[in-house]
Design a protein around this nucleic acid. Structure first.
Lengths: 119, 119
DNA sequence: ATATTTCATCGTAGTTTAACGATAAATAGT
DNA sequence: ACTATTTATCGTTAAACTACGATGAAATAT
């Protein structure tokens, strides 16, 4: 009978399964496109936008803009509610709070005890 | 002779051309994968890692890990210098500073005068 | 009733990403 | 001189992303 070797600690593998890590990745991924950043910026400036407001301002087809809006909505960062023939978009307060926490926690992670680059 | 209509302001279209917007998108996109977040976390914890340190800990092929490292390196977030047969990876101080500024500026953008979701 | 507007969705095409195994180059060990 | 180890890169595959035009549904206007 063989002696069982202790499993090595695999901290990062755990981090991969961590829901918080997955969520952070989803949120940052949703931010990771210039068009989506522009959409979000516009929403912080005007706080209410119809889909057409974005297409007026972005050099993209309406269907493309709609797709980007869907990405942001699926990530929980914005709301979209149809109001009559139009759809009203705005920031999702809860999602934005979560996003801010995510951004802050990432920022905290990178607060290094200033050391020179080792390589 | 027809009167020239004033061009509508197209602020977000400008934002798309903005290098800062593109850079923010590049940085957040680089963060937007669980494996890359795990790699970065490990680097903040151990401040020096060889490629093998990551592959020991991640449930991925060495070539895949190498690809993720390349993404982070191309984004300027980490350094990689070969030292002998191995390659030493660490955080890129300058890139991390830039990243922190990016994260903070995004966070600032979302600091809303708490209003209820309009839709 | 009909036409127009607004927008989501579908289908499609081209590009990029993410994963793998295989390989090659370079160093270190025997 | 070989052999091991380490790691970047290549080739490949499958999936996801980005963009577009076309279409259809729903509400509004004529």
């Amino acid at each position: 009978m063989t002696v069982l070797e202790p499993e090595p600690l695999r901290s990062a593998e755990v981090a991969l399964d961590d829901p918080a890590t997955k969520r952070s990745a989803q949120l940052t991924k949703a931010l990771g496109h210039p068009v989506r950043l522009a959409i979000l910026k516009l929403l912080t400036q005007r706080d209410t936008c119809f889909c057409g407001d974005f297409t007026d301002v972005l050099p993209l087809a309406q269907s493309t803009v709609s797709q980007h809006l869907k990405v942001l909505k699926d990530a929980g960062i914005i709301n979209g509610t149809s109001s009559g023939v139009r759809t009203c978009y705005c920031l999702n307060t809860e999602g934005v709070e979560e996003l801010n926490e995510c951004l802050e926690s990432l920022s905290d992670m990178f607060k290094m005890t200033s050391r020179p680059d080792c390589c």
